[in-house]
């Protein structure tokens, strides 16, 4: 086994091992490892920053959304109030109009009734006149006596009773 036979090479092997390992150690220690550490640290801090910023932006977005929702809710409430107000106004108006209409209708009815009453009176008047004439004509024909108009009228009036009394003079 050469490993155990070539004893004369041992010193050289140990020497070169120590030298090479020493060089590797110093280079790793002073150059390579700090560089890797720096790169890792940079990445870590960058990652932390990014995550931090993401959280911050999210918070901001939440605030904005909250504000927006609040504004929305306010606008909605305002709209509701306006609608309610409008509705109230409208109903009041219609009630008023309704009352007015009822009133005017009642007035018209009263007027019409008055007209009807007047018409009736006039009709009664003309009936009396016709009755007077008929009475005098009938008297003349039957009795042969000419009744003057004044008497005939009085007779008719008494016959008719008090119906048209208000209208006579």
């Amino acid at each position: 086994m050469p490993q155990l036979e070539q004893i004369d090479t041992y010193l050289s092997q140990v020497f070169w091992t120590a030298l090479c390992f020493g060089i590797l150690w110093i280079v790793m220690w002073k150059v390579t490892l700090p560089r890797i550490a720096m790169a890792l640290e940079q990445r870590q801090s960058r990652l932390d920053d990014d995550l931090e910023r993401a959280a911050l932006i999210k918070e901001e977005a939440d605030t904005v959304r909250e504000g927006y929702e609040k504004a929305l809710a306010e606008a909605h409430a305002e709209g509701q109030a306006a609608i309610r107000k409008q509705t109230a106004e409208l109903s009041e108006d219609s009630a008023r109009r309704h009352a007015e209409l009822t009133e005017s209708l009642a007035k018209k009815i009263k007027k019409a009734e008055a007209n009807i009453a007047a018409e009736k009176t006039r009709a009664m008047e003309s009936v009396r006149e016709v009755a007077v004439e008929a009475a005098s004509a009938a008297t003349e024909r039957l009795v042969g006596v000419s009744v003057d108009a004044e008497r005939a009228r009085r007779a008719v009036e008494s016959a008719m009773g008090k119906t048209g009394s208000g209208d006579g003079d």
């Binding site: 004369d8 090479t9 010193l11 050289s12 092997q13 020497f15 070169w16 090479c20």
Partner: peptide, 8 residues
């Protein structure tokens, strides 16, 4: 002897 060998 510190010869530079194939090992080194």
């Amino acid at each position: 002897d510190l010869s530079f060998t194939n090992s080194a």
